[in-house]
Nucleic acid binder design. Structure first.
Lengths: 361, 361
DNA sequence: CTGTTAGCGCCTTCAA
DNA sequence: TTGAAGGCGCTAACAG
């Protein structure tokens, strides 16, 4: 990795490295026009590319933003990543990507790696977990973040604070109103749906999933409905598919037992990808939506909008979320003091009822 | 960004920085067990995190892989990114992400930024363009890549070589058999479809799109079919949607003019996302697939597999593509000499006919 | 306004 | 095996 150095440029231009530095990079002092041109020309002819590592070392800041996601191929994270990218570009920084699969241990590793690279800030997307088995991992992650922040790093986490993080300075939490929105979704569905509700959730302890489950139950309760049964499975398409198979079996059983006019089921899957999986399962069992069962998701993933029947869901401004989280870490140590800045501009979702929960046959 | 330094650790452990370095990082020399423990303990208690920038500066290599995509939220790129991630992890490197929107100028910027950061290698995904308007941009991009490679960088580009790049050492091209596969798709479709074909392509000059268009035409020709008309629009969902509207109008016009038994159209959209857009347009115009028109895509995007009617398409191992491209840059300067390593393990796609092109009513 | 002198934190010869 | 010295490329204080 040998490239021409600032010193070489300076020599060619017949000036000191300091001067060359001043003209080639932003400095308060502005060198004379004549000399500046000579330097620029020398740089050009040598194909000089500043060494960001050296710059970083010298001014101890790297121009890097670390982004931690479960899986970059998941459209949910991909959308957030796009927002982060944009915000990074605004700040003239680059984004470093880490994919963890969701485990706190891997997240800790990622944070350490970012810290080692002296990333200016870290954005953590992806649900927190409070499962017992993740306890130690969370503690370690919290410690790592803590240290990173104490060393001047900025971190923003989407959704929930990292379990056990003792928010020093520079720790921002971008709250996402999952609970409230799920509540509202339940409310609206309860208004137009007479049958029972079932929730297809992720593993217990996944905070995002839990919020959506709980919110939904609350909405149901307020509407005077009885609580929905909760089926747990993986927080992805195949989890939804499995749950869907189970439900399909029940629906078919119930139907043959009672005849035709049985109470229809409305399935709430805690994210769109699971909802699609569940829908696929029902379909594979010969059931139709919304004829035999209604289904709703959460997130309003862009790629899934052309799905038929159109999926009722809750629209989340994923890109904005990424952007806002990133910005929260950008504005120097100004805006948010310590913990839990409530949604700055206010993350607002929107219940979006579509064909998949239409009650009309 | 102040953190404890190696020197501090060394002092606390009562050894020289050199020794501390040797124990904390992999070195040929192995320090005494006793001293090693002391150092490790000191490091632990100080919360020492090695400064990757300094390490990079010292040994001039950064452990970074740069990835350039048009748009990380596009599932095509997201899938490739996942593969790149995995390969990076194998190599114990991190990936730096750059989103360019597809313009050569922005790509050049990204390459320069990666070069500045001394990325060990760069992976460029996303179609090359040979449009006249991009000529200068391509030249500049080629020059930048050239310089990067001359300085010891490794670059892998997916699909086509960068127009004008004079492949020095370290320049790898991962060929994707778009043309062959499109050809095969046409062949298979021609076998089961009697009506005419129309191609919905991206802008002319987008190499990936052109390959697929040309390959498809070739397949058609070999099957004795007349060439398909080519509609050009943006290489994304909305491009497909627009083209779909146009086609819907034609179909409806043709139908009212001739009565019922008109020759049905089979639409080949050069990627899945466009196909979905086109399908949505047809549907919005009251047309049904495959009843009123057949449609096929390309890529076999995972998220779109649950789409109904199931989309006929060509399966591309996107994740492998990302992985292989990355690996090509990893194995030192060993494997590929200069240009165009033909697909190493052989990128193999697969024509996948599904419901959307079924001929049976 | 320019050049000189020190480091930034680490690795790597070279002696010891 | 360990320590001391020099340098990676650049910036930031000082001098001139």
């Amino acid at each position: 990795m040998a490239a021409s150095t600032l010193t070489e440029v300076a020599r060619l231009a017949g000036v000191s490295p300091a001067t060359a530095s001043r003209v080639l990079n932003g400095s308060a002092r502005k060198p004379g026009k004549d000399i500046a041109d000579r330097v620029r020309q020398a740089a050009e002819s040598l194909g000089y590319v500043p060494n960001a590592q050296a710059q970083g070392l010298a001014k101890s800041s790297s121009g890097l933003i670390g982004l931690i996601v479960h899986d970059i191929a998941d459209p949910y994270f991909a959308a957030i990543a796009r927002g982060v990218q944009e915000a990074a570009r605004e700040q003239r920084k680059m984004v470093l990507l880490a994919t963890t699969g969701g485990g706190p241990a891997e997240e800790r590793e990622a944070v350490a790696a970012f810290a080692a690279r002296r990333a200016d800030s870290i954005v953590i997307a992806g649900s927190r977990s409070c499962r017992e088995e993740d306890h130690d991992g969370n503690t370690a992650l919290a410690a790592e973040l803590d240290r990173y922040c104490r060393n001047g790093g900025q971190v923003a986490v989407v959704g929930h604070p990292v379990v056990g993080a003792t928010a020093p300075e520079g720790y921002h939490v971008l709250r996402v109103p999952n609970r409230e929105l799920a509540d509202r979704l339940a409310t609206e569905l309860a208004g137009s749906w007479d049958g029972d509700f079932v929730i297809v959730g992720g593993p217990e302890g996944l905070l995002t999933s839990d919020d959506r489950v709980n919110g939904f139950q609350e909405g149901l309760a307020r509407a005077g409905r009885r609580p929905a049964e909760v089926l747990r499975s993986a927080f992805n398409r195949s989890g939804g598919y499995e749950a869907g198979l189970e439900l399909a079996a029940r629906i078919k059983a119930g139907r043959s037992a009672e005849g035709a006019a049985d109470p229809k089921l409305c399935i709430f899957a805690v994210n769109d990808v699971m909802a699609i999986g569940a829908a696929a399962a029902l379909r594979s069992e010969g059931l139709r939506i919304p004829r035999d069962a209604a289904i709703a998701g959460f997130d309003d993933i862009e790629t899934l909008r052309d799905f038929r029947p159109a999926l009722s869901t809750v629209r989340l401004p994923l890109e904005d979320i990424g952007r806002l989280a990133t910005r929260a870490t950008g504005r120097g140590p100004a805006a948010g003091d310590a913990a839990e800045d409530a949604a700055p501009a206010g993350i607002a979702g929107e219940v979006t009822l579509r064909r998949s929960t239409e009650t009309a046959a």
